[in-house]
């Protein structure tokens, strides 16, 4: 990277930041772009941010490997892609491990230091904080009010062990479909539903086909802001402090953007007579998932899962 010593003792550094999110999504315009404005606004920091949204730098797991090698400086990553390098982080993606986003952020603030330090040792990357992405929830061709309603539907889940375990925990009949073919597959009826946060479902136009949203809110969608240690090694202390502070500050603003956008999409769906938006029997789903994971996990993973549930 273009590293020369600039004014004020801070080296001139260009940070390349990747994300899977398109420009229309809150994590881009209320996240990455804010970060760029804030850091570049402090001119004596000598930081330039180069943004690559929309998977321009590759799919999630491949981008995370590039953060490890230092070829990408910062990335927004979900837990499951990073679990290929550090399996315990996948547990945070377990269905209903967290009751809601407040529970998640409380846990991150209380246990994050210890957990992220272990993550750092294993991966050579540093998680500064997490930004909210939305609660994953079902959209399908039919209502899903209780776990039994899932039986007759083929629901597409991402093809990773944690997501497939979530499917089993909720009682869903998961089908494997590559994300590139998902829209067509839903359109032609290869699958009758999928699960994603409301804003992502709308942005990827799955709601053009799937008219029934059942708000299970079964998984906290969060994007960790993860930085390469190779990049941190090149940064001065004031630069690192400013980056950390800016990422923490943006967390709340980003969350408000996601909540506002979610409300806006849901209001649009509710106003549309061809659509149904359902509240569901969450307790039935939570009980089923918890019973499943208490036997699914073993060893350290089980301890981690139980400690998260105990803090609910």
């Amino acid at each position: 990277n273009d590293t020369t010593t600039g004014t004020g003792g801070n080296p001139q550094i260009t940070l390349k930041i990747g994300s899977s999110q398109p420009e229309t999504q809150p994590n881009y315009h209320c996240g990455m772009q804010l970060l760029k404005q804030r850091l570049e606004g402090q001119q004596d920091l000598n930081l330039t941010l180069d943004l690559f949204p929309n998977s321009q730098l590759g799919p999630d797991a491949e981008r995370f490997a590039s953060v490890q090698s230092g070829d990408i400086d910062i990335d927004l990553q979900g837990g499951s892609a990073m679990s290929t390098a550090y399996p315990p982080i996948g547990v945070l993606d377990a269905a209903y491990a967290f009751n809601d986003i407040d529970h998640f952020f409380t846990w991150v603030d209380q246990n994050g230091d210890q957990f992220f330090t272990a993550f750092n040792k294993a991966t050579g990357t540093t998680i500064i904080d997490a930004w909210y992405f939305g609660m994953r929830t079902f959209t399908a061709t039919k209502p899903i009010r209780k776990p039994e309603d899932l039986a007759g539907l083929k629901i597409r889940f991402p093809n990773t062990p944690q997501f497939l375990a979530n499917a089993e925990a909720l009682g869903a009949n998961a089908v494997a479909i590559a994300v590139e073919e998902l829209y067509l597959a839903l359109q032609q009826g290869v699958a009758q539903g999928q699960e994603n946060p409301v804003v992502a479902t709308h942005a990827q136009k799955f709601d053009e086909i799937l008219k029934v949203a059942s708000l299970t809110d079964h998984q906290v969608g969060a994007h960790y802001v993860v930085v390469s240690d190779k990049t941190l090694a090149k940064m001065s202390q004031p630069q690192k402090d400013a980056l950390t502070k800016a990422v923490h500050d943006i967390r709340a603003e980003n969350r408000k953007c996601v909540d506002d956008e979610t409300t806006k999409v849901l209001d649009g769906w509710r106003a549309d007579p061809t659509r149904t938006v359902l509240e569901v029997d969450k307790q039935a789903f939570i009980a089923k998932a918890e019973a499943y994971f208490n036997t699914h996990y073993t060893g350290a993973d089980l301890e981690l899962y139980k400690s998260i549930r105990a803090s609910a």
Partner: peptide, 12 residues
């Protein structure tokens, strides 16, 4: 050498 611990998502 660089990725001794990384494994594939589904097959491990």
């Amino acid at each position: 050498l660089m990725y001794p611990d990384r494994s594939s998502a589904a097959l491990g």
